[in-house]
């Protein structure tokens, strides 16, 4: 009984086009043609250098230059990256965001962005993105996200009978302070207004 390798060989002997295909594949797999190998080497060297320049924290005037050179390609292709998990200084404050929703009739209610610590285990798996989003909402560099967030909260809480007039986004925070002795005691919660947003009729559509 012929082995499958024998069968392949037999098939190739009877089929010149397949023979050519396998031969080409063999060349690409093993002994790469010189031009292909040069191209791959250029690709490898460029990407290794560019990725290293992009994310390795080194103090050299060449690094910003290199980053600026590769920035358009990295942003386009999605090769940008940063690995600053809990670094250089881990977040030392517990926070959550809530919104005070003020209605046209003067009534108000408080709406809170989902807080992981108040969700069940499965729900946390599905809604973890809210944690990351809340973290980004609080960053000064992302202030432009706040009006969008206020509009979204307005749409969630409005009705034709009771339209929303204003949304006030509030950051609640409590510093994590190591105690000298004994168990950790959480600090009191404080508040900081992130944005007061006057809702426009078109925001509610």
């Amino acid at each position: 009984m012929p082995s499958s390798a024998d069968e392949t060989k037999h098939s190739l002997e009877n089929n010149p086009s397949e023979q050519a295909g396998i031969a080409l594949e063999g060349v690409c797999k093993g002994n790469l043609p010189a031009i292909q190998k040069i191209a791959i080497n250029v690709f490898l060297a460029f990407h290794m250098l560019a990725v290293a320049c992009w994310c390795v924290p080194m103090d050299s005037p060449l690094i910003p230059l290199c980053r600026n050179l590769v920035r358009p390609y990295f942003l386009w292709s999605g090769l940008f990256q940063s690995w600053d998990m809990f670094a250089p200084i881990p977040k030392a404050v517990n926070t959550y965001i809530e919104a005070v929703v003020v209605y046209e009739d003067g009534s108000r209610k408080t709406w809170t962005l989902p807080r992981m610590e108040q969700l069940g285990l499965t729900e946390r798996y599905f809604r973890e993105r809210y944690r990351k989003f809340a973290e980004n909402l609080q960053g000064d560099e992302n202030d432009a996200l706040l009006p969008d967030a206020a509009r979204y909260i307005a749409r969630l809480n409005t009705s034709s009978a009771k339209p929303v007039k204003t949304v006030i986004l509030i950051q609640n925070y409590s510093f994590i302070v190591p105690g000298r002795d004994g168990p950790y005691v959480p600090e009191a919660w404080e508040r900081h207004i992130l944005l007061g947003y006057a809702v426009q009729p078109e925001d509610l559509r």
């Binding site: 809990f86 881990p90 977040k91 030392a92 517990n94 926070t95 959550y96 807080r115 992981m116 610590e117 285990l121 946390r124 944690r131 809340a134 994590i176 190591p178 950790y184």
Partner: peptide, 11 residues
């Protein structure tokens, strides 16, 4: 200490 006292990260 800080990482494990972040309420939002506790599992």
């Amino acid at each position: 200490f800080y990482v494990y006292h972040l309420d939002e990260l506790k599992r």
